[in-house]
């Protein structure tokens, strides 16, 4: 079987209006992919940067997949949340990015979005915090259930991923 190592970090996030951000992440892959080692999901620390608007998480990722097929190349689902002064958590952005399909070290910038509520919800969000969030974000991060969902832009999540394939060439796969 061909193997794939993904080793790197969720470095941080920039461009969000909120501070005190954290990120929930998980890695999705097709049914032919088997996770041999490493954590498939996690949650980062909460960073409240001292002087600028970039939150740093430095969250390590180290996963080892074995695969019998190429369908369902692994991808990362990211949910950025923010903690306000009262200790409440509210959604700041959803995003996904594919694991780069090329051996080597990659800096990945993942743009994120969040559901946009009506005018009253937007005003409430501005004054009180909170705001709409998806009940089940999993399907909406894919392509299947985006129809008629209204969203607005949020910040960018920065990742650094090293991709290390093994025995792909033996099966005639170029990456």
């Amino acid at each position: 079987m061909a193997e794939l190592h993904v080793i790197g970090q969720i470095v941080g996030a920039s461009g969000f209006d909120e501070s005190s951000l954290f990120c929930k992440w998980d890695i999705h892959a097709g049914s032919a992919w088997k996770l041999l080692a490493g954590r498939r999901e996690g949650q980062t620390q909460v960073d409240d940067p001292q002087a600028d608007d970039v939150a740093y998480w430095c969250h390590p990722i180290d996963v080892h997949f074995a695969t019998k097929g190429l369908q369902g190349w692994p991808r990362l689902h990211l949910q950025v949340w923010h903690r306000d002064a009262f200790g409440r958590s509210a959604l700041a952005g959803y995003g996904f990015c594919a694991v780069p399909a090329r051996a080597g070290w990659h800096g990945v910038a993942c743009g994120t979005w969040r559901p946009r509520g009506g005018p009253r919800q937007r005003l409430a969000r501005r004054l009180l915090g909170g705001g709409p969030q998806l009940r089940r974000p999993g399907p909406a991060l894919g392509a299947a259930e985006r129809f008629r969902l209204r969203t607005e832009a949020a910040g960018t999540v920065h990742l650094q991923l090293a991709v290390l394939p093994r025995h792909f060439a033996r099966y005639g796969v170029q990456s």
Partner: peptide, 8 residues
């Protein structure tokens, strides 16, 4: 990591 609060 989720219980950790930090300042960079």
């Amino acid at each position: 990591r989720e219980v950790t609060r930090v300042r960079s």
